[in-house]
C-alpha cells in the first residue's frame, strides 16, 4: 500500500524551485567572467608638472643615453642614426656596460635615458621606441632576478626583491619637451 503512494507522487511535476537559483548562478558567473575588450598597454608614470627646467649640467655625458626621434620617424641615438630593431640591444649594452667602455654608463644606477621627439613624430613610432626602451629594462630586470632569486621578473615578486632589483637598475627615463619642426596632421 505504501508503495503505491510513492508512485502517485511521481505524477507530480519536477520541482523547479531551484531553477531560478541555477539561473542566477549562471548569470553571476557570466557577469564576473565577461571582460570585453581586454585593456592592456604600457604603463608610464609621468613626472610632476614643474615650470623649472631640469638641470642637466650635473650629468656626465657618458651616463646619458639620448634618443631623438624626428618627424620623419628616424632615430638618432647618441648622435648616431639607428634602426628601432637595434635599439633594445644597444640600450642594454649601454646600461650594463659589460666591457667597461669609457663612453657607456658608469653603473646601471647612473644611466639615464633621455627621450625627445618631435611634435610631428608618429605616435606609433613613439610607442615602439618607448616599448623597446622599457623592454631593455625589463630584460635586464629579468636577468638580474633569475640570477639572484632564480625566477623571472614579474610584478608578483615580493616587494623587497623588486626593490632590490630596481635599486640596482633603476629605470630613469626622462622625456624632454618635444621640438616642433615637423608637420602635425
Amino acid at each position: 500500500m505504501s508503495k503505491s503512494k510513492v508512485r502517485d507522487m511521481m505524477k507530480n511535476e519536477i520541482n523547479a524551485g531551484s531553477m531560478a537559483d541555477i539561473a542566477f548562478l549562471l548569470l553571476i558567473f557570466f557577469l564576473v567572467t565577461t571582460t570585453l575588450v581586454e585593456d592592456s598597454g604600457i604603463t608610464v608614470k609621468l613626472p610632476p608638472w614643474s615650470t623649472e627646467e631640469p638641470d642637466i649640467t650635473k650629468l656626465k655625458t657618458r651616463n646619458v643615453y639620448s634618443v631623438l626621434v624626428n618627424a620623419q620617424n628616424q632615430l638618432l641615438v647618441r648622435g648616431q642614426v639607428m634602426r628601432v630593431e637595434e635599439l633594445r640591444k644597444n640600450a642594454k649594452e649601454f646600461i650594463v656596460n659589460p666591457t667597461a667602455r669609457p663612453d657607456y654608463a658608469e653603473k646601471p644606477k647612473n644611466a639615464l635615458i633621455m627621450l625627445k621627439n618631435d611634435r610631428g613624430t608618429n605616435y606609433a613610432t613613439y610607442i615602439t621606441v618607448y616599448n623597446e626602451l622599457k623592454g631593455a629594462y625589463n630584460e635586464l630586470w629579468d636577468d638580474m632576478s633569475s640570477r639572484k632569486y632564480g625566477v623571472a621578473y614579474s610584478e608578483d615578486l615580493p616587494v623587497a626583491w623588486k626593490k632590490s632589483i630596481k635599486e640596482e637598475i633603476p629605470m630613469v627615463l626622462s622625456e624632454a619637451e618635444p621640438t616642433a619642426f615637423g608637420k602635425e596632421n
Binding site: L46, P47, P48, W49, A71, N117, D118, R119, G120, T121, N122, Y123, A124, Y126, I127, P178, A180, G182, K183, E184, N185
Partner: peptide
C-alpha cells in the same frame, strides 16, 4: 590612434601633468 602625430598627445600629457 597609431597614425596620429605626437603634438596632440604631448598637449594631453602636459594637461595631465598639470592636473596631477
Amino acid at each position: 590612434d597609431g597614425k596620429v602625430t605626437m603634438g596632440i598627445v604631448q598637449d594631453i600629457k602636459t594637461e595631465l601633468r598639470k592636473a596631477n
